[in-house]
Amino acid sequence: METEVGNKRWHEPGEQVEVAVWLNGEQVVLATEPRKTLADTIRAAGYTGTHLGCEHGVCGSCTVLVDGRPVRSCLMLAVQAEGRRVETVEGLALGEQLHPIQRAFHEGGALQCGFCTPGFLMLATGVLREDPHAGADKVCERLTANVCRCTGGVPITQAVLAAQREMYGAGE
């Protein structure tokens, strides 16, 4: 039950609100508590490719794109996504055809345990969309926003640059 005190609205603990978003190109309505993060809400809706690591915005495993820009979904409330475009790793592939960044990660051995991979894929997608002709130094710098404890940065950076060459004929 919603309560109004002064000019503020308060929701009872556990009460659900509806949040309409464009999720991977499809308009959906997500039911969530106002206090829930975007990460928790999209995972509850079945989009479990978005991983939760530190839940403090440090590791980057929960990175999704919101209106085309990389965002730590563990730091954003779901209600803040109302009316916005949210892209998760599930939205990268076209059916069975992997996105060039996914393919480059696979072919370049840029993943081991795979926990950080969805966040890196989404971060890289956002970086390359923002600057399709970013040089190796800029790509490497931007990728330091996420943490990988298995492969380290070199294979990941090389995979993103390989995808960049395939997608835009750009890079190094």
Rank of each mutant, 00 (worst) to 15 (best):
E2A: 08
T3W: 04
E4N: 00
G6R: 05
K8P: 01
K8S: 07
W10K: 14
E18C: 13
V19W: 09
V19P: 01
V19M: 03
V19L: 02
V21T: 02
W22N: 15
L23G: 12
L23S: 06
L23W: 10
N24P: 00
N24K: 10
E26F: 08
V29R: 01
L30S: 00
A31G: 06
A31T: 05
T32R: 01
E33D: 09
K36M: 11
K36E: 10
T37W: 00
T37A: 14
T37C: 12
D40S: 12
T41H: 00
R43F: 03
A45K: 04
A45Q: 11
Y47L: 15
T50M: 06
T50H: 05
H51N: 08
G53K: 06
G53D: 06
C54L: 13
C59H: 10
C59L: 08
C59G: 05
G60N: 09
G60D: 02
G60Q: 05
C62I: 05
T63R: 04
V64G: 13
V64P: 09
V71S: 08
V71H: 13
S73F: 02
S73R: 00
S73P: 06
C74L: 13
C74H: 08
L75P: 06
L75F: 06
M76P: 10
M76V: 15
A78S: 08
V79I: 15
A81M: 00
E82F: 00
E82D: 07
G83Y: 01
R84S: 06
R85Q: 12
V86C: 05
E87V: 13
E87Q: 15
T88I: 11
T88K: 07
V89C: 01
E90A: 12
E90T: 15
E90R: 11
L92H: 03
L92I: 04
A93P: 09
A93Y: 10
A93R: 15
L94K: 13
E96F: 10
E96R: 14
L98F: 09
L98K: 15
H99G: 07
P100H: 14
F105H: 14
E107P: 05
E107S: 15
Q112G: 02
Q112L: 09
Q112P: 06
F115H: 15
C116T: 07
P118K: 11
G119M: 03
F120Q: 13
F120P: 13
L121P: 03
L123S: 11
A124H: 12
A124Q: 01
A124G: 11
A124P: 13
L128I: 07
L128A: 10
R129N: 10
R129V: 00
E130I: 05
D131E: 09
P132K: 01
P132N: 01
G135V: 04
A136E: 08
D137M: 12
K138D: 02
K138L: 09
E141C: 12
E141W: 11
R142E: 13
T144D: 01
A145P: 04
N146W: 05
V147G: 05
R149L: 03
C150M: 08
T151Q: 02
G152D: 03
G152W: 03
V154C: 05
I156M: 10
I156W: 10
T157E: 04
Q158K: 15
A159Y: 14
V160F: 07
A163E: 06
A163K: 10
R165W: 06
E166I: 00
E166A: 14
M167A: 14
G169R: 09
A170R: 15
